[in-house]
Design a protein around this nucleic acid. Sequence first.
DNA 1: GGGCCGATTAGG
DNA 2: CTAATCGGCCCG
Length: 190
Amino acid sequence: MKLQSLDREFFRRDPVSCAREMIGCTISLGVCCGRIVETEAYAAVGDPACHTWKRQGARDFVDGNPPGTAYVYLNYGMHWLLNFLVKGEKEEGFVLIRALEPLEGMELMRERRGGRGEKFLCNGPAKLTQAMGITGAHHGCDPLVEKEWKLVFPSAPPKVIASTRIGISVATDRRWRFLQMESSFVSAPA
DNA sequence: GGGCCGATTAGG
DNA sequence: CTAATCGGCCCG
């Protein structure tokens, strides 16, 4: 089977479809690799939970970068969260990566995560950035171009479950959280 | 400048 | 349940 890398076109769509279809894709940074088992979509327009709702800086980021660009931000003053910029013709926004199934480089992940067990290395948006070594230094980088990054489609599309987004206090009714069915590496059950 | 809040996490 | 910890935003 042939490994098909995500391309620019993949991110030139609406964020909800993009978030759904990123489930099952693998993401690599350096020697570490994991399968994406949980994502969330945020819409640049009309979504009170999206950074663009309140932050001009986020809006500028959308306008000033190509689709696929990494949007990394510091949450609660201590946790880096990884998003990918999505820019369709009609809809723009972000896909938040919320959990990975660790596949490669687990030794290094474990070291970065204080020796925790495999199931707890990447089962949360801030845990996976810590395990993968993603920080604000990666904000604005282009994973479709930069060599240490690799984003690859799954050989077969997994079963995906839609659920409500987590950890937000507004627009909580939208089922814009996506999980790989039966995965034990998600941050929380659907 | 000060106050408040947040797409979280680990520990009690 | 809460502390930790800081950039952005809203005031003044």
